[in-house]
């Protein structure tokens, strides 16, 4: 059932990035995945035009975390009218960097034999959470103290019905690691860490109170502009 759930969640997060009417009949939908450290953009391309499409290529604009295609878009056969094809594009994080708004925005250019088309999409920031993002406990305590209070952001996650252990397990599957758990006055406090591909660490305190469906998440980071994206990621992981 874990596998089926994974497939389902992939299906749910598939989005239409380029509608056919904006790209002379080429429709692109897709999703981003991270599996065992490999980031991929999984796409479905459909030809809704009346002529054959060939010569596909893809390029990203510079972006906040240096995402770039790590190989060509592998569509080796012409795409006939009404035909769809799946393509998985491996991504690297060593491309050119430029801060985007929102931070996780990606501008993409796709070309075929007809024209060049552009679209924007947003990737979940958890795609950039590395597998070795569990901070040493001693380092966590020192870093938490060291990061100024002005760099702390607090958010509410409403309507969440997991207990703290279930939440912790779910978050670990997107490389958010629980380092310590304490219970104070009936409230579970989870101390967590994650590390982005560019080496930025994010420290978190997640408060879960039995019987209260509203969690409080506090995020501390030396680059606090990532906090909003990280919060959105907590919400989507915990609610899906």
């Amino acid at each position: 059932s874990g596998w089926i759930n994974k497939q389902l969640s992939d299906v749910i997060s598939v989005q239409v990035w380029l509608p056919a009417m904006k790209a002379k009949g080429l429709e692109i939908s897709g999703t981003f995945v991270r599996r065992a450290g490999v980031i991929q953009m999984e796409m479905n391309l459909t030809n809704k035009a009346m002529s054959v499409m060939t010569d596909f290529a893809i390029q990203f604009n510079r972006n906040s975390f240096g995402l770039a295609s790590a190989g060509p878009l592998q569509i080796l056969t012409p795409l006939s009218p009404n035909q769809s094809i799946e393509a998985a594009l491996p991504l690297s994080t060593v491309g050119p960097v430029m801060k985007m708004e929102p931070l996780n925005n990606l501008q993409v250019a796709v070309k075929n034999n007809i024209d060049v088309f552009y679209f924007s999409c947003q990737y979940p920031i958890s795609m950039l959470f590395v597998e070795d993002g569990k901070m040493e406990r001693q380092v966590f305590l020192a870093t938490w103290k060291d990061i100024p209070n002005d760099n702390e952001s607090q958010f509410q996650i409403k309507d969440c019905h997991l207990n703290s252990d279930a939440a912790s397990n779910k978050l670990q599957s997107s490389n958010i690691f629980t380092i310590a758990k304490r219970t104070v006055e009936g409230q579970d406090m989870l101390y967590q860490s994650m590390k982005l591909t560019n080496g930025i660490w994010v420290l978190a305190e997640l408060r879960v109170q039995a019987g209260n469906p509203n969690y409080t998440i506090s995020l501390k980071c030396r680059a606090p502009e990532v906090s909003q994206c990280v919060f959105q990621n907590y919400e989507s992981v915990l609610k899906n």
Binding site: W144, R182, E185, M189, Y191
Partner: peptide, 20 residues
């Protein structure tokens, strides 16, 4: 001893965040 100290430090952190 270090581990005990860290356990204690996390307890103090959680306590101080609940009752600042």
């Amino acid at each position: 001893e270090l581990e005990d100290g860290l356990d204690e430090a996390f307890s103090r952190l959680a306590e101080s965040r609940t009752n600042p």
